[in-house]
Design a protein around this nucleic acid. Structure first.
Length: 360
DNA sequence: TGTTATT
């Protein structure tokens, strides 16, 4: 990829990122044993509202996909925020890691890495650690725990305002037995130089908590016969607040209603494609590819599809492309933000697709 | 007690 946006895949070893110190930056394509799959990827930290189809669309822009699964809560159907993508060609899996690891989608920074072979021994290997010295860094935390096994992720929680460590964190080991040994060796022990002992125990499983909370909400709600629309309404409300905070957008007064009316009445408004809102992106460079569109539009909300229009003979971009977004509000903010955006030495023109434009 | 890491 020739053009790199500021919000594109980056190498982030920030103090609060759930990364492993040792291998996150240097090479996510790390050595694996001979039986490990080189086509199957695990994708972590997906936006809550991202669907399996959107996951497939995003990773399908790299190469042919053999299978793709978004993992959902068995009871509530809610996304658990991670999924699997299995490519036909191992080269595409490697390309997906290099291209999409660290991609920002809405409020999340996705992680793309090889999936370990599925096994009971790698489940429930996540530890919750508290009582850490406030001065302890993520690197020091990993150094302390690495004597017990291979660390998959680590994280130290920080105060959102001050950025100061809250003295609590997480360590995910490769295998549960490693986590068990770490508890035996480190629980109630003082780290080198520390004045107080730390607590090390297995972390709560967030999927169980979410599922319980949602179920109890369902049972307590007087309108529980309509969980679907209510959940959507709640999601919309949270989105409105988020947009308001982030951009000062009063989406309560934006044409949300138009979205509903158009679908019912079949009115042909610019960009409205039935399956979402189609956006026209003009003045792309000849070497532009799909990933640049994902990087630009992904942070603004649910994107279902992107397409770079190419010349049949040269395979070079003809200077424009299309992006389909599910929600009007998010599409409108994306357009307002990206129209006039300078990409390399070009100034983009971004608008809802109109009928006079070449069909996608 | 997390940007829900094993289908």
């Amino acid at each position: 990829m020739e053009t790199q946006l500021s919000n594109g895949p980056t190498c982030n070893n920030t103090s609060n990122g759930p990364s492993t110190i040792s291998n996150n930056c240097s090479s996510p394509v790390e050595s694996s044993s001979i039986e490990d799959s080189k086509t199957n990827l695990i994708v972590n930290y997906l936006p809550q509202n991202m669907t399996q189809e959107e996951l497939k669309s995003l990773f399908g822009s790299i190469g042919d996909i053999e299978s793709c699964k978004l993992v959902r809560d068995k009871i509530t159907g809610q996304s658990l925020g991670y999924g699997f993508v299995n490519y036909v060609d191992p080269k595409d899996a490697e390309k997906a890691i290099n291209t999409l690891n660290g991609l920002r989608l809405q409020t999340k920074t996705i992680k793309v890495s090889y999936a370990r072979p599925s096994s009971a021994s790698i489940r429930d290997a996540n530890l919750y650690v508290s009582g850490l010295p406030k001065t302890m860094t993520q690197k020091e935390l990993e150094q302390l725990f690495s004597q017990y096994g291979r660390i998959i992720t680590s994280r130290i929680l920080v105060d959102q305002v001050t950025g100061v460590s809250r003295g609590v964190g997480f360590i995910r080991f490769d295998r549960r037995v490693e986590a068990e040994e770490a508890i035996k060796g480190l629980n109630c022990q003082k780290p080198p130089g520390a004045t107080e002992p730390i607590t090390v125990k297995f972390a709560n499983n967030p999927s169980q908590k979410t599922s319980q909370a949602l179920l109890s909400q369902l049972y307590q709600s007087p309108n529980r016969r309509y969980p679907g629309p209510l959940a959507q309404q709640a999601q919309r409300f949270r989105l409105d607040n988020l947009l308001n905070m982030a951009y000062g957008v009063k989406s309560r007064f934006s044409p949300m209603a138009i979205d509903g009316v158009t679908s019912l009445a079949g009115i042909n408004l610019p960009g409205h494609a039935g399956t979402g809102w189609c956006i026209f992106v003009y003045n792309l460079a000849p070497d532009a590819d799909e990933s640049i569109l994902w990087q630009m539009f992904g942070p603004f909300g649910a994107v279902t599809n992107v397409k770079v229009i190419r010349d049949f003979n040269t395979n070079k971009c003809k200077g424009f492309g299309f992006v389909t977004m599910t929600n009007y509000d998010e599409a409108a903010v994306a357009i307002a933000s990206l129209n006039g955006y300078r990409l390399g030495d070009r100034v983009l023109q971004v608008s809802f697709k109109t009928n006079k434009t070449h069909k996608a």
